[in-house]
Computed example of a mutant assay.
Amino acid sequence: MSDTPRLHTAGTTLLERARELRPLVEREAEAAEAQGKLTDPVVDALHESGLFGVWVPVQLGGAELSPKELIAVFEELSYADASTGWVLMATTLENGTAGAYLGDDAVERIFKGPRMPVFAGQGTRPGSAVREDGGFRLSGQWSFASGMPHAQYAHSLGAVEGTDEVRICITPIEDVTMLGNWDVLGLRATGSIDYAIDGAFVPESQSHVFTQDEPLRGGAIYRLGLVDQALICHSGWALGVGRRLLDELRRYAGARAGRPGQIAGSDAFHADFARAEAKFRSAGALVHETWNDAERTLDAGGRLDVRQETMVRLALNHITSTLAEVARFVYASGGTSALRDGLIQRLFRDVHAGTAHITSGPQVLQECGRELAGLAPGESWLVFALES
């Protein structure tokens, strides 16, 4: 097991590289949406900049950013394009946790190449894993595999037959049948297709228990476990997309200043914009406050307690619901410019796809309220619910 009690921090180098990619990502966004996946120039740039390694343990050649550093990188790329930020957050969560939790044999096979491997898949509804000598036979069908068109490995949840155990199983992309049905309202460029696996053999070292929270390599961030690390992803994404929406509306209004009948001269619009800005900044401040607190605990060698786990879930739920409000306000204020094909329309559609994710579902909010109200004594978080 890891003997590193502290968080690893890597500084701002990768954030600066993400910022440098903004012109390319923005330029390619329309083509990516049309083809239903990121364009080759963007994927190549993410590799060349090292951004696919932001979550991978340092000893495997990754950057192993801290939670706050990850949030900043995902915010930056999501500001440039919601789909690009989404693909990076999903794939790096999966290759980072694989690097931390898989056995040595698997890691030697998977992380030996000149490029960081890209993972895609789904870790909620499980397929079937039948135990076999040395591993498992994995079968099933999964949805929402963000980044699958660019992946070399699939990350899939499997329920071990005859037991209560569920495991993340890693399979080479050659074992995957891509079903290709990604015809959706928003986040079209994420390529989050459905896929199937039929009886692929998964060596034991190429899997790990879903709830694993003690890393075999890497530092304190991996003590969060897979689910709490996923909250980092979606928090950074919401911060970037919300900021871009408000900035685009500011530009839209400013371009129409001085014209009669435009929102730039409306007192009601001025007040509504101030309210939207305040709500969004407040929700973002809660995200940063909760992860600052979480980092202090992790860096001291501890694990999050129940209240801290409640707060990181609540912070994500709040920034996500606030993002949905901001998107509706920006779309309504954008008039026919928002109605037509363009950036505001695309952002509006992307938000309504992204805010439907299970990590910000209504059950999570209800459970947060129950714990905060003191109505869950002796209970702890298991994925998105509190249990005794």
Rank of each mutant, 00 (worst) to 15 (best):
25 V>R: 01
25 V>Q: 09
27 R>N: 12
28 E>C: 06
28 E>K: 01
29 A>E: 07
29 A>G: 06
31 A>H: 09
31 A>Q: 12
32 A>S: 15
33 E>V: 15
34 A>N: 10
34 A>Q: 15
34 A>D: 15
35 Q>C: 12
35 Q>S: 14
35 Q>P: 07
36 G>W: 01
37 K>L: 13
37 K>A: 15
38 L>I: 05
39 T>N: 10
40 D>M: 02
40 D>P: 08
40 D>L: 07
41 P>C: 09
41 P>E: 12
42 V>Q: 11
44 D>R: 13
44 D>L: 10
44 D>K: 14
45 A>S: 05
45 A>F: 01
46 L>R: 05
47 H>Q: 12
47 H>M: 03
49 S>K: 03
49 S>P: 03
49 S>A: 09
49 S>F: 00
50 G>C: 05
50 G>W: 04
50 G>D: 02
51 L>R: 01
51 L>D: 00
51 L>W: 02
52 F>E: 03
53 G>F: 10
55 W>L: 07
55 W>M: 13
55 W>I: 00
55 W>F: 14
55 W>N: 11
55 W>A: 11
56 V>S: 06
56 V>E: 07
57 P>I: 12
57 P>L: 09
58 V>W: 05
59 Q>K: 13
59 Q>N: 12
60 L>R: 10
62 G>H: 13
63 A>R: 00
67 P>M: 14
67 P>S: 13
68 K>L: 15
68 K>M: 15
68 K>A: 13
68 K>T: 14
69 E>K: 13
69 E>Y: 09
69 E>S: 12
70 L>D: 04
71 I>C: 08
71 I>K: 07
71 I>F: 08
71 I>Y: 11
71 I>S: 01
72 A>P: 02
72 A>C: 06
72 A>W: 06
72 A>G: 08
74 F>Y: 15
